[in-house]
Structure formats: structure tokens, C-alpha cells
């Protein structure tokens, strides 16, 4: 291991180390902690300008229920889920297929195709804004969940293809040679050899894609207009306009919006790290 592990016997050194890390952590998360504190303040306190001190009163229940009661935030949450989950599944399926083919099949244009996936995934969203919106309007999908699902699935497939291709390319060649020797079809190879081995990658990709799609704000405002479809990030921006200086409520909503990806991350952390390790490091 590097740096050299602090020996288990050196208890004071360990304690000092943990204290140091904790101190750095506090600094690191200070901005977020203060937002959490602000989400507990009363409106009067915010108006009086107490943004960073310890809250004078804790209004956890009042503020967080106000966010749900006075706005369509609950609706936005459901919308975000309806958009995000199918997108994640779509990305996993498509990128497993593309990643497998690009890593294990030689054909003319393989490299070009892969380059397009990778390159396209790095394009700024703005460059496709106008045509994508026109496309969705033309398909009659403007302001539907499907518009967002299709776009996110398409866009994230770029990154996911890079990820899956690298991951599958790093699997031992012998497995595929063996499969071929046994006369397995491409589909059998994919289903019986590849899929069982890429579970950690799928898990990692799932949480990454979930985070990207959930956090998207740009497309949320470009492709939707009504409350019935609008995802939670766009909803959050609504609140900013509505609650002019009720920062406590905006802060509460901000925290609410952050919870699902953070929770996802903590729940699937092992896969996340494992996936990144293999996907990125061996890539």
C-alpha cells in the first residue's frame, strides 16, 4: 500500500490521523453543511441575515413539509424517477451490446464507430440543443417523458459504450476462445460469458448514469414545459423564482434534490468503486 499504512500498534498516530481527516472533511463539506443548516432556519432568521451561524430554531418539519405541500416537488420527484430509471436500463442494455461488439468483433469501421461514440459523448449539450428540440417537436414527443428518456439514453450510451467496451476488452481472451471452440453463438457468448462477468461494471454504470440523468438541468428545461413531466432539477429552479428570499425553503428543496443520488451512491458504493477500478484502470 502507498502511502505506508499507519501501523495498528501506533494508536496515537492513528487517532491523530483520523482527527486530521475529519478536520479536512469538515472543511471540504462546509458549504454543504451550511446549506443543511440553512434548510432548518426560520424565515425570520433568513430575513434577518443569519445565514451561517447556528440556527436559532430548528424548523426541520415545517420547512421540509412546506416544500412538499406548497409546491409540486413530490410530482417532480416522481417525474425524475420515471425519466431516470428507464434511461438507466436503456443505457445498460444498449451499451452492453455496443461495448461487446466493439471490443470483441473486428469489422471495418469498428474504430471509427467507437471514436464517434466516445467523441460524441464529450460534445457540449448546447451544440445539439436546437436540432434535438426540433426533432422531439417533430416526433410529437416534446414535453413528454419519452423525449427526455430518448435523449438521455442516446447521450449516455456514448460514455457507457466507452466504459463497457474497455471493461469487456479487459476480460481474459481465453474465455472467448473457449466459447468459440465450443461453437457458442455471439448471443450465447454475450449472455453466458460476458454478462455474468460484467455485473460490477453494470452496477457502476447504473449509478453513474443515474447520477448524470437525475442531475441534468439543461435538457429538463429544453424538452419539457409542464408540471406533469418536469424533472426535479427544473422544479428546483422554479422554487428559486417562487421563493424569492426564502432561502431556508430553497435550501431544503436543494437538499431533497440531492438525496436520491447521494443515497444511490452510498448504497452501491462498493460497485461504484469496483467498477471504476476495473473500467478506468484496466482500460
Amino acid at each position: 500500500m502507498y502511502p505506508r499504512p499507519i501501523p495498528e500498534t501506533a494508536r496515537p498516530a492513528r487517532a491523530a490521523y483520523v482527527a486530521l481527516v475529519a478536520a479536512v472533511l469538515v472543511l471540504w463539506l462546509l458549504p454543504l453543511v451550511t446549506v443543511m443548516l440553512t434548510s432548518l432556519r426560520s424565515f425570520e432568521e433568513v430575513m434577518a441575515g443569519n445565514y451561517w451561524g447556528w440556527p436559532k430554531s430548528f424548523n426541520f418539519i415545517e420547512n421540509y413539509t412546506a416544500v412538499f405541500k406548497q409546491t409540486a416537488l413530490a410530482r417532480y420527484f416522481v417525474n425524475s424517477l420515471i425519466v431516470t430509471l428507464p434511461s438507466v436500463i436503456g443505457v445498460l442494455v444498449l451499451s452492453t451490446l455496443t461495448g461487446y461488439v466493439l471490443s470483441r468483433h473486428r469489422f471495418p469501421g469498428n474504430r471509427l464507430l467507437f471514436a464517434l461514440f466516445v467523441g460524441g459523448n464529450f460534445l457540449p449539450a448546447q451544440i445539439m440543443m436546437i436540432p434535438v428540440r426540433d426533432l422531439m417537436v417533430g416526433l410529437g414527443l416534446y414535453d413528454t417523458y419519452l423525449a427526455l428518456i430518448i435523449f438521455h439514453t442516446a447521450f449516455q450510451t456514448g460514455f457507457a459504450t466507452l466504459f463497457m467496451r474497455n471493461f469487456i476488452a479487459a476480460l481474459p481472451d481465453e474465455l472467448f476462445q473457449a466459447a468459440r471452440a465450443e461453437g457458442a453463438s455471439p448471443w450465447q457468448t454475450l449472455w453466458h460469458v460476458v454478462v455474468p462477468l460484467i455485473r460490477p461494471a453494470l452496477a457502476a454504470l447504473a449509478i453513474l448514469t443515474f447520477t448524470f440523468v437525475w442531475n441534468d438541468y439543461f435538457w429538463a428545461i429544453v424538452l419539457t414545459q409542464s408540471d406533469a413531466v418536469k424533472p426535479v432539477t427544473a422544479g428546483l429552479n422554479n422554487l428559486r423564482g417562487e421563493w424569492v428570499s426564502a432561502w431556508n425553503l430553497v435550501a431544503a428543496a436543494t437538499i431533497m434534490v440531492a438525496i436520491p443520488p447521494v443515497a444511490m451512491f452510498f448504497l452501491m458504493q462498493r460497485h461504484f468503486i469496483a467498477g471504476l477500478t476495473m473500467g478506468a484502470v484496466k482500460g
Binding site: L94, S95, L97, T98, Y100, V101, L102, H105, F107, L113, L116, F117, G120, N121, L123, I127, M128, P131, V132, L135, I150, F151, T153, A154, F155, T157, G158, T161, S185, P186, W187, L190
Partner: peptide
């Protein structure tokens, strides 16, 4: 089979991302 595998992803990505750009 590989062609069929790669088609949905490539088409979707090609139309929505690459062509749009």
C-alpha cells in the same frame, strides 16, 4: 448478430447526438 447488437445503440446515438450536432 453483432450487427444487430450494435444497431440500436448506434442508430440512436447517431441520429440524436451525431446528426443533431
Amino acid at each position: 448478430a453483432p450487427t444487430l447488437f450494435i444497431l440500436p445503440g448506434a442508430l440512436l446515438f447517431g441520429v440524436v447526438i451525431i446528426l443533431a450536432s
